[in-house]
Computed example of a mutant assay.
Amino acid sequence: MRTVLVVLFDGVQSLDVTGPLEVFQGGELHVPGSYRIRTASPDGAAVRTSSGLTVVPDQALTASATPHTLLVPGGQGTRNPAPGVVAWLREHGPRAERLVSVCTGAILLAAAGLLDGRRATTHWAYCDRLARDHPSVEVDPDPIYVRDGHVATSAGVTAGIDLALALVEEDLGREVALGTARHLVVFLRRPGNQAQFSAQLAAQTARREPLREVQLGAPPTPLRQWGRITENPGGDLGVESLAARACLSPRHFARAFQAETGMTPGRYVDRVRLEHARRLLEDTSDGVEEISRACGYGTPEAMRRAFAKALGTAPAEYRRRFRPASVPTR
């Protein structure tokens, strides 16, 4: 049996606690005896979460043995942690077989020296702080979770569920993880290297209307077709074509697009096409060749290169791992 111990403190984010716990509890329901789930606060007293909920722990940290999986959630309380939390983590963290953080829980792990020399992530809004305060940590702001040896760190809130599902799959197999995901009405589909933001969220919205129409769209007229990149990922989305839709020169368009969105047109198009291809692989039974054309790659080989570069896997393998069992195959 694997003991999962969740560290509680005042100001903890309630979903950082309950999301992963529901996943591990789902694994326990599918395979009784797989997990023993415990919660602990510094002194064993109830804690108040950042949303105002009161949570009563099972025990005090001082009475807690080193668990198999030590999970540290995030929340406002990580800014000024209760006395003893960091010291307890510094003592017990290195002995845990698996060390996990959700959201800004990574800040507590870093303060305890448990992320030194490791690659890690946290909520996008706190990545700069984590990197600044702990230069020995290699902070990657993009993925929803990062695995580095026995240490796993994740981005905010729902990313903790994704990471917990990955751990259950590792412990108990894919079918158990899928059953847990279905029970929670979530999909076992987001790999750790998926970006915290979609292309549309990662890029700022352009201020000028012509650029915004190309980026986000505007209704078609008899003289204008859809200009939205996301509406037509398989179309001609070269700088010259996009610039013509915005009635700008290619050079002016490229410079203005990057200045206003924080991303080059090519980078934005690449991310939109990759996201669209992933959705089609997950949600349809369309063939790889058909998907590559629909997403603007042209050939399966071009799509394979894009997947290998961005995700470290091939489209067929991605589909095998992340398409729900309910999607039929041809």
Rank of each mutant, 00 (worst) to 15 (best):
V7N: 10
T18R: 01
E22F: 04
E28N: 08
P32A: 11
D43L: 11
D43Y: 05
S51M: 13
S51A: 10
G52E: 12
L53N: 08
T54I: 09
D58F: 06
D58K: 07
A60C: 01
T62Q: 14
A63V: 11
P67S: 03
L71Q: 00
P73E: 08
G74H: 04
G75R: 08
R79W: 03
R95G: 08
L99W: 05
T104M: 09
G105Y: 02
L108I: 05
A112I: 05
D116H: 04
D128A: 14
R129D: 10
R129I: 02
A131I: 07
P141D: 06
A152L: 14
S154L: 03
A159I: 03
G160I: 10
D162R: 06
A166I: 04
E170W: 05
L172Y: 06
L172I: 07
R182I: 00
F187R: 13
G192S: 01
G192P: 04
S198Y: 05
E209W: 09
E209M: 06
L211E: 05
L211P: 10
R212G: 10
G217R: 06
G217M: 08
P220W: 09
T221K: 09
Q225L: 13
R228H: 12
E240Y: 02
E240Q: 14
S241V: 09
S241Y: 09
L242M: 15
A246L: 08
T261F: 02
E275D: 08
E275A: 09
R278N: 07
D283H: 13
T284G: 09
T284M: 03
D286R: 13
E289Y: 06
E289A: 14
G298P: 11
A310H: 13
L311R: 02
A316Q: 15
E317P: 01
Y318S: 07
R319K: 13
R319Q: 08
A325S: 14
R330Q: 10
